[in-house]
Amino acid sequence: MLIYKQFTFDSAHFLPNVPEGHKCANMHGHTYALSVFVEGHPDEKTGWIIDYGDLKMHIKPIIEILDHHLLNEIPGLENPTSEILTIWLWDKLKPLIPELKRIELKETPTSGVIYEGS
């Protein structure tokens, strides 16, 4: 069974490695939508795979690093494409949430990345 919790954060970035003249070379911002999926079986006593409050507790400090910041200034995100940001998030979250199965990061309502680790 998969459960999920959704989060949003606002960040600015620019992409330094795109071709000259590409609009994403300019600084711009996104309201990112992050969905975190956890896999498991409901505990016999609690009926939960994980308490949503515990999930939020693990994720909130990571979101605070990103929210209302310039992503390019965060170590490891010097070229913050959605793909690189998604891997960065996974690497931060997986040690905190061993049951983590998948994350989905939407840069816009119609564009995003789904990652299930490597």
Rank of each mutant, 00 (worst) to 15 (best):
68 H>I: 07
36 V>N: 01
65 I>K: 14
111 S>H: 12
109 P>G: 08
70 L>Y: 11
40 G>P: 04
9 F>S: 06
51 D>V: 05
37 F>W: 15
14 F>K: 05
43 D>H: 14
94 K>L: 10
63 I>H: 04
112 G>M: 05
24 C>D: 01
8 T>P: 02
28 H>V: 03
82 S>R: 00
81 T>G: 08
87 I>H: 08
67 D>P: 03
84 I>D: 05
81 T>K: 10
37 F>S: 12
25 A>Q: 08
1 M>P: 08
31 T>N: 12
78 E>M: 05
3 I>Y: 04
106 K>F: 13
31 T>P: 01
88 W>L: 06
38 V>K: 00
71 L>A: 08
68 H>R: 10
100 L>P: 00
115 Y>A: 09
7 F>M: 08
29 G>A: 11
37 F>K: 02
34 L>F: 08
32 Y>C: 05
56 K>L: 03
9 F>H: 01
116 E>V: 09
11 S>W: 01
39 E>F: 10
70 L>V: 14
31 T>E: 06
50 I>V: 15
54 D>S: 09
82 S>I: 07
55 L>M: 14
98 P>F: 06
104 E>R: 11
19 P>G: 06
110 T>E: 12
86 T>N: 07
54 D>K: 15
21 G>L: 08
79 N>W: 03
118 S>N: 13
70 L>F: 14
49 I>P: 05
43 D>L: 11
80 P>Y: 05
105 L>Q: 02
95 P>K: 03
92 K>F: 01
90 W>H: 09
67 D>K: 01
51 D>P: 06
105 L>G: 01
106 K>H: 15
87 I>T: 11
21 G>W: 06
57 M>H: 14
47 G>M: 12
18 V>C: 05
71 L>H: 03
113 V>I: 15
22 H>R: 04
94 K>C: 03
107 E>C: 02
94 K>I: 11
78 E>A: 12
75 P>M: 07
97 I>L: 11
6 Q>C: 08
102 R>C: 14
106 K>A: 11
109 P>M: 06
33 A>Q: 13
41 H>P: 00
57 M>V: 03
95 P>T: 01
46 T>A: 09
91 D>N: 13
67 D>L: 05
16 P>R: 03
23 K>C: 04
57 M>L: 13
70 L>C: 11
35 S>H: 07
27 M>H: 06
41 H>I: 15
52 Y>H: 14
90 W>R: 10
46 T>F: 12
13 H>M: 09
73 E>D: 14
24 C>M: 04
75 P>W: 07
60 K>A: 15
54 D>V: 13
99 E>A: 13
65 I>A: 01
89 L>Y: 00
14 F>C: 08
6 Q>N: 13
49 I>F: 08
16 P>Q: 03
10 D>F: 10
117 G>K: 06
60 K>H: 11
107 E>Y: 02
7 F>L: 06
52 Y>R: 10
26 N>W: 09
53 G>I: 10
20 E>F: 04
74 I>M: 04
2 L>M: 15
104 E>H: 10
19 P>A: 10
26 N>L: 11
84 I>C: 06
106 K>S: 09
65 I>F: 03
21 G>P: 08
24 C>V: 00
7 F>C: 09
13 H>A: 05
105 L>M: 05
34 L>Y: 04
36 V>G: 02
53 G>W: 08
1 M>T: 13
6 Q>K: 14
58 H>T: 01
30 H>R: 06
113 V>Q: 07
84 I>A: 13
87 I>Q: 10
48 W>H: 11
86 T>F: 07
85 L>D: 01
104 E>I: 12
85 L>K: 04
